[in-house]
Structure formats: structure tokens, C-alpha cells
């Protein structure tokens, strides 16, 4: 699934205008606990979260994730967006709740990753 399709499926808004929306996303993870995200392993993933602080971007960066979706209409500050843009991570925001956003992406064929290292 491409980032553009995630944007459409969630009725989301792109907050990093220079992001490449044609990048493929292979798996997703939804969590507000970054340590849980770090226990999950998969390249080119998308992180859905309601947490709004710089550690979200740092966590995504460490996991080689390519897209972050802020749920429940959360909009990160400029500093967070700049941090993400510098790492080529696309940032989206959607009014959908975590459950609904994950469900919509699952319905479109996106799956969770593996917990194996």
C-alpha cells in the first residue's frame, strides 16, 4: 500500500508537504507506547499513534518507518514536523480514532508486522 492510499483511506491531511506519497508501506503498528513499537519489527512501516511528542519521530526513525499517522485529530508542532521531514518520514493527521483508523487500513489489506528481530 502506498502512503497516498493511506491518506485517502483515512481521509487524512498531509502535514509534510514534500513527502513522497508513492513510497510503499508494508506493515502497520498502532500504539501510544513507544517501547511497544520498538518491540515490533518491520521495514517500511506506518506508525499510528495518539502520542504527540518528538519521541514519536525518533522511534519511527529507529524502526526505519516511512509514515506516521496522528489519530484523533492530533497535529504535532513545527519542531516535530521538521524532525520528521529531515528523516523523509511522511506525517499525516486524521480525525479517526485509533481503532477506526487501524480497522480501515486493515480492511484495505495492510497487516501488522512480526515481533521477531
Amino acid at each position: 500500500m502506498k502512503i497516498r492510499e493511506i491518506l485517502d483511506a483515512l481521509g487524512a491531511r498531509l502535514l509534510t508537504p514534500d513527502a513522497d506519497l508513492e513510497v510503499d508501506v508494508h506493515a502497520a503498528c498502532g500504539s501510544d507506547m513507544m517501547s511497544d513499537v520498538l518491540a515490533y519489527v518491520k521495514d517500511q512501516g506506518v506508525l499510528l499513534t495518539g502520542l504527540n511528542n518528538p519521541q514519536v519521530v525518533r522511534t519511527a526513525d529507529m524502526m526505519d518507518m516511512v509514515c506516521i499517522v496522528f489519530v484523533r485529530g492530533k497535529v504535532p508542532g513545527e519542531g516535530i514536523l521538521e524532525l520528521a521531514a529531515a528523516r523523509d518520514i511522511a506525517v499525516l493527521t486524521t480525525e479517526k480514532t485509533m481503532f477506526s483508523a487501524c480497522g480501515l487500513l486493515y480492511e484495505k489489506g495492510l497487516r501488522g508486522g512480526t515481533s521477531h528481530v
Binding site: 517501547s35 518491540a39 511528542n53 519521541q55
Partner: peptide
């Protein structure tokens, strides 16, 4: 700390795991 997304008790286990 939990409100910042950490403190779930996964830090040391993750460090060992990786």
C-alpha cells in the same frame, strides 16, 4: 514518563532482544 510513551517495562527486554 508513561504519558510520554515510555515506561511500559519494555526497555531492558528490548535492549537484550536486539
Amino acid at each position: 514518563v508513561r504519558s510520554l510513551g515510555f515506561g511500559a517495562g519494555m526497555g531492558l527486554p528490548n535492549m537484550k532482544k536486539y
